[in-house]
Amino acid sequence: MTVLRNKWILIPAVVLVLLGSYFLFLNTAFTGTRCEGARVKHGQVPEDQSDCYTCHKKTTPKAAQDWYESKHGMILVKCYVCHGQPDGKGAVPFTATPSVATVCQRCHAPAIDLMQSKFGVRDQCETCHMFHTSSLHHGAYGKSESKEKFE
């Protein structure tokens, strides 16, 4: 556990390799129960379905649905704007957790400055403001209720 806790010393490449091999393993080890979408791999997607959302609706339904219902989904800030593209040839780094400095800042620089002056430097915006589940409509699932309750 302590090793894992101190994982910030691991370079991101190791994380990626681990993730990669994990999904590879999951795909090959339990062939009987893998889900439908898992058969399509990044980079082998049929041309007319290349929009990330089309596949991720099936493969990661919760993440896809969260995005769709979120502010970002509502105003069409699409997957690749923050997460980059799988072949790694894009300008945005391909990652699950986008970097504040290179991604979030493009639109939210004023908010980031405000939050920093209020609360000091935190690790990630996402810790408190969940990208996907920040909803446009009042009372929708996942709206940052915790904050309202505890302050």
Binding site: K7, V15, T97, A101, T102, Q105, D123, Q124
Partner: peptide, 16 residues
């Protein structure tokens, strides 16, 4: 989940 813990201070990272 544990991978997500204890991130380095990403906010302080340089803007490319």
């Amino acid at each position: 989940a544990m991978l997500l813990l204890d991130k380095g201070p990403a906010l302080a990272a340089p803007d490319q």
